[in-house]
Design a protein around this nucleic acid. Structure first.
Lengths: 165, 165, 165, 165
DNA sequence: TTTT
DNA sequence: TTTT
């Protein structure tokens, strides 16, 4: 049984252009390096800055979009979860890495080098682009145009297969 | 184009048993009333408490699960978005309502009246249970057992159709 | 005792210039109307859009900053909590309102009309500007320059009064 | 200037009792190991589980409370930010660590070994307990008892120094 | 009422 | 390595 919530929300800027690769199965895997900077003031009034560089990974359709639209300097909202990995390096030494596995992304106002005008929000399900299988939330029926009647019998407010926003 | 993030995270207790209804299409729509209480101390050291009662709505499979497992008093984690509605009441007066549309739910340690032992985490996509169509994230291939080899060519770390956790 | 989490995270654009007023005590109270738009695709492939207009309220120092730097069209990140109020209108009718009480704000890349170049992140504590009393987190000592030594005795990593980022 | 949002939200169970140490200045530094488990189903219907172990650090007053009330097995809500550190180990090798710096904590229904009945929510500001200096939000005046009158002149809704919940 |  |  699932136990626990592991959620990360980041807003930051890319330190470099995204790096996209493909698995043998054709799934896009895009990695970015995302900076978030925080500021604190000490008692003397000096400003203390610290920047974290997050390794964010996008899979599937989300990986394609990230690879296509993000650029060095782009400002982006990312939602995902933390994944810790342990592996043995080429040198035989055990190493650790931490990645943010993105499952939602949205480009913000910031424009990086060569930034394309197109922006959008996307939710990833790791779908292979070839399959083009719509994620569950896209199969959904539109919310009916008429405003909800708000009767006591609230289930009537929704039409067949109706999925709310 | 999608513009914006509208995200709500709640941890609270149900004020009553859930109320589940079904649309003509057979989709479950479950509503709960969820309390979150915050505390502040004023300068005199007096404790000030305030409780917000959130109207949370679960659709589809998530609605069925919420209706089955949650009970008055249950402690639950809910993630979703805010939806504001305006409608005309029976009395012809314009009214407003605010609902939290849940898209993730997880039962916590608290047990309400008659609380069942079963707990779990679920992500909703508004799927009708009858369809039993797996949400995108459930179609995913398991992460391969072998630890990621972490070569420079990181896309090789993932097998065909491999979807990470 | 506090029970529950009531957290809202919004990224959206202002529909109008902020509205700032002051209490008799001199505390700034700034309100904005923030739009978040979501998109879904129905089975026919039609795009369905829905915009929520959030009433966001900033108090104290945060209210001053919001009033000074935000403008119609500005894109902003807001973190806060939901507050539901019930009151009796001039007409003697009971009414309900829902507000997002902001406790963190950050301007994003978007620039509204007359948008000033200055941007920043701020955490509110409701401080009156006159008092200029530093919030707890600003009284903090800076993290020491030397990188953490990471001994087993991890508390040694932090100097007197040391507060991490 | 601060640029970016770095936010983590976790709900999980402690793998061990907390470890509390004190700096020379008397500040508590408490570390816990927090498990979050996620579940996915592959196409064959097999359940795939993966557990992440988060290293969470609490400072100051929050560190004291975490050390006193949390126990192995306790279920807890944690909010904070990710901090990546790089340091040179005893063996002269460069190492990396990732910590979640908590700034909010709330005990949930779960009770670990020897779990005390007391529960509560706390926000940390890294204050030394000795100082007992109230965090900004605790200096706040209580919300006045009378319901907000909701006039057009909304700033009048708040009394002198009034800070909302 | 914003934005793309 | 970003950004302001």
């Amino acid at each position: 049984m699932a136990r626990g919530i592991n959620k990360v929300i980041l807003v930051g800027n890319l330190g470099n252009d995204p790096d996209t690769k493909y698995t043998q199965g054709g799934m896009a895997v895009t990695r970015i390096s995302l900076a978030t900077t925080s500021v604190r003031k000490d008692r003397e009034g000096n400003t203390q800055e610290r920047t974290e560089w997050h390794r964010v990974v996008f899979f599937g359709k989300l990986g394609e979009i990230a690879g296509e639209y993000l650029r060095k300097g782009s400002q982006v909202y990312v939602e995902g979860s933390i994944r810790y990995d342990k592996y043995t390096g080429q040198d035989g030494v055990e190493k650790y890495s931490t990645d943010i596995i993105a499952d939602e992304m949205q480009m913000l106002g910031g424009r990086g080098e060569g930034g394309g005008g197109s922006r959008g929000e996307y939710r990833g399900g790791g779908d292979r682009p070839q399959q083009q299988r719509a994620p569950a939330r896209q199969d959904a029926q539109p919310r009916r145009e008429a405003p909800p009647a708000k009767s006591n019998d609230f289930a009537d407010d929704f039409a067949d297969d109706d999925i709310p926003f």
